[in-house]
Design a protein around this nucleic acid. Structure first.
Length: 283
DNA sequence: ACTTACACCTGCCAGC
DNA sequence: TGCTGGCAGGTGTAAG
């Protein structure tokens, strides 16, 4: 479910409430809550202080006063909520991290709070990992996202230009550019007026540049709106929905008129997922 | 070295 | 009412 804007919304919420806090207890409630490649159990973070909450693309990690980091990926349906330990537990609660000394709580109560990892489909995970130059093991192969200082627009354009895959598949490839998922890929291609199935090598560098900058622009607007929520799946750390779905131009709008030319938006099955586009604007 | 197909899950909704 | 198939925001992997 969550793409870069949703993950960033969660990251910013966590940063606000949990940086500086010490983890006093940790528990998993589902066998897949901890990634199999985790170097230690979740209990190993007990006693650690949270120094920062970092993100690259759709990957989040807690920087701790330890050699290792605690990585979190939300998969298709994961949530991280910050709640008082006494508040009702969600059906799909997979793990928690109880905080010993948090200064602020979302409810402004003096109650102890905890970070809850909730995940209906169980594609998300937590993992205790070693780091190299501050980057955890499972994030090492993920490309810079467009909001990082190190993001090299020219390098990404020339990489894409050499590819033989469809442009949509390429921008979904987290090893080339990270953070873009199915929603923002469709939105970026609509903004750039490009059909999702065009082969990268057949595009001009200017066209490729336009897709990449459109992806960054649409994700920036979505962050401002608190992300895209269609249902109960995406929530920020306070359990609130984002409202960017009303600003989407094509995603989830099959059969509705294109806002530029009024042609009806089409949905096609492509690369094992749905693609939404305007058949007139995007040839 | 790339690219693609598929597996990994649970739940909801439309249609019969 | 209850079944079935299709669909859902992602990623790692195996095989071509």
């Amino acid at each position: 479910m969550p793409e870069l804007p949703e993950v960033e919304t969660v990251r910013a919420g966590l940063e606000r409430y949990v940086v500086g806090a010490k983890i006093s207890a940790a528990q998993t409630f589902h066998p897949r809550a901890l990634k199999t490649t985790s170097i230690a159990t979740l209990k190993s973070v007990i006693g650690a202080k949270i120094i920062a909450v970092n993100r690259r693309g759709k990957f989040l990690w807690f920087e701790l006063d330890r050699e290792f980091a605690l990585v979190a990926h939300l998969g298709m349906s994961g949530q991280l909520l910050v709640q008082p330990i006494t508040s009702p537990k969600h059906l799909h609660l997979r793990a928690n991290l109880v905080l010993g000394n948090s200064l602020i709580s979302p409810k402004k109560s003096r109650e102890k709070i905890e970070i809850r990892f909730i995940d209906q489909r169980t594609f998300g995970w937590l993992s205790v990992e070693e780091q190299s130059n501050g980057i955890p093991t499972s994030v090492a192969h993920i490309a810079y996202d467009p909001f990082e200082h190190e993001f090299d627009l020219k390098a990404v354009i020339s990489d894409l230009k050499r590819r033989k895959s469809a442009i949509k598949s390429a921008i979904l490839n987290q090893g080339i550019i990270s953070g873009i998922g199915n929603i923002y890929a469709d939105e970026a291609l609509w903004r750039a007026r490009l059909h999702p199935e065009i082969i990268c090598g057949d595009l001009t560098e200017d066209e490729i540049k336009k897709v990449v900058l459109s992806a960054k622009a649409v994700m920036k607007s979505a962050i401002k709106a608190g992300g895209t929520s269609f249902d109960e799946q995406y929530k920020n750390v306070n359990g609130e929905s984002g409202y960017f779905s009303r600003s989407l131009s094509v995603y989830g709008r099959e059969g509705e008129p294109c806002s530029r030319c009024a042609t009806l938006v089409r949905r096609i099955a492509f690369a094992n997922r749905s693609s939404h586009f305007c058949p007139r604007c995007q040839r």
